[in-house]
Each structure stands twice: as C-alpha cells, then as structure tokens.
Simulated assay, not measured.
Amino acid sequence: MNETKAVRSLFEQVAPHYDSFNDLFSFGLHRVWKRQALALVKPKPGERWLDLCCGTGDLALVLANYLRPGGEVLAVDSAAAPLAIARQRSARMPWLQINWLQADVLNLPAINTGFDGAVIAYGLRNLADPGRGLEVLKRLLHPSGRGVVLDFNPSEGFAGILRQWALAGVVVPVARQVSLGEQYSYLEESIARFPDGIEQEKLAIKAGFSAAQHRSLAGGLMGALMLQC
C-alpha cells in the first residue's frame, strides 16, 4: 500500500471517533483555533471558498456560515467515511451552501478555479507532497485569492514538549482502548516531519504565492500559515 492509500485508510478507520477525540484531547479548543484561523483571512458573504482535506466537515460548516448569503464552499477529502459524516451534518443545515467532493487533493478532477479563498486544517502534512499541495491550492485560487493552513506547530520548545507528552501519555493510550493506537501514533510522526513555519513560508513562495506568513497560535502549540496570491 502506497503512502496516499495508507493515509486514506487511516482516516477511514478513525472517522467514527475523530470528532469526539478532537473534543476530548483539545478540551474543545480545536473549534476556537479553527475560528481564529478563519479570522486571519476574513471570509466574506458571497465568496467561493475551498476546504481541502475537509475531514468530517466541521470547519466547512463554520466557513459556509461566514459566506452567507450567496457564498459557497467546495469541501474535498480523499476518504469516504469522514465525508459521509460531513454530508450527514450538512443535510441538517440545508441553508449552508456546501458541495462535498471525494478526491485526492494532489490528483483532483477538473473543477472550476478562481476561488476567493481556501483553508486546510490539519491536512497539508498528510499529503504525500505538501509543496505540491500548495501548488494545487495556488492554481485553484483567484489571482487576488488568499488562504490559511492550520496545523500543529512542529516546535521544539515548551509547546513541542507538551504536545509530545500529550500524544504519548494521553492520546495514544486512550486510542488504544478502541483499537486505534497505531493510527494515532501516526499523528506524532506526521507532525515531526512536517516543515516548520519558516520552511512552510518558503514552500508557499516556491508554489507561487506572492506572500506567506506563519503565525503561532495557542501559545505556540498551533501554527497558521497565511497565504496571499
């Protein structure tokens, strides 16, 4: 199994527990961090936005509410199980304009471009090639478009020590109780090899963005990469 298929399989297995684990392990703060990331790029009513690696859709739903009236979201994920949960949520809020697409971000089918903005939350590091993922994002955006990438900050300071302790001492042991220890062990591995903020900025500029700024959130535990075409 290649890396792309392995990651997709991982999220297929994790999907039923994903949201409850996020709430448990972050004390619900992941919702605050996602709203903070959106606040940095200011989605506006009537705009068209992308949510790449959308998972179970919680961020896409929040984003779609910012875009009312007249705006819409295209939410993309490679795994079927998270998208099934996302579609169920979306069906309960039919006033939100969201289209859900199952596809590999690095091998998207032909879709309209010219999006006003884009978000990727906890997904860029799961792509086989994050730099190429940023190139895809740039291609899909309007020449004046903007975006934000939210993820753990791969720092080595206190925040990094806290993250490592929480994952090894809390997250993985709890996940083992529902036979998902191996899947959640992957989390720390993926964070450890994810480029730091400076390298993310360089990747974004190489991908064609005119400006890229990485900002720490949550005391350095999280990082937001702001992008401008």
Score class of each variant (00 low, 15 high):
214 H>I: 07
135 E>K: 14
160 G>R: 00
111 I>P: 09
53 C>P: 02
16 P>K: 05
45 P>L: 02
68 R>G: 01
12 E>L: 00
134 L>V: 02
123 G>Y: 01
63 L>D: 02
42 K>Q: 14
50 L>M: 06
61 L>I: 05
36 Q>A: 11
3 E>D: 15
197 G>V: 05
133 G>M: 00
25 F>A: 00
149 V>C: 09
72 E>D: 10
144 S>N: 13
57 G>W: 00
24 L>T: 13
93 M>R: 15
109 P>N: 08
45 P>V: 00
82 P>C: 04
58 D>S: 03
186 Y>M: 12
139 R>P: 01
125 R>K: 13
70 G>Y: 08
178 V>N: 12
78 S>A: 15
124 L>E: 08
99 N>R: 15
85 I>K: 11
93 M>F: 04
186 Y>R: 08
35 R>C: 01
181 G>K: 06
10 L>P: 08
182 E>S: 14
61 L>R: 11
152 F>G: 03
46 G>R: 09
25 F>Y: 10
188 E>G: 11
125 R>F: 09
99 N>S: 14
37 A>C: 08
179 S>T: 12
20 S>V: 10
207 A>F: 08
216 S>E: 13
213 Q>W: 08
80 A>Y: 11
30 H>C: 00
43 P>A: 00
101 L>K: 14
159 A>H: 02
82 P>E: 05
45 P>H: 05
64 A>W: 00
89 R>H: 13
193 R>P: 04
135 E>I: 06
68 R>F: 04
220 G>T: 05
138 K>N: 13
191 I>Q: 02
174 V>Q: 14
48 R>F: 08
46 G>P: 07
154 P>S: 11
111 I>E: 07
177 Q>W: 10
112 N>A: 14
105 V>L: 11
176 R>T: 04
225 L>P: 01
26 S>G: 11
192 A>L: 12
136 V>A: 11
54 C>Y: 07
48 R>A: 05
124 L>S: 03
41 V>R: 03
158 F>Q: 14
163 R>K: 09
169 G>N: 15
115 F>A: 01
181 G>E: 01
217 L>T: 08
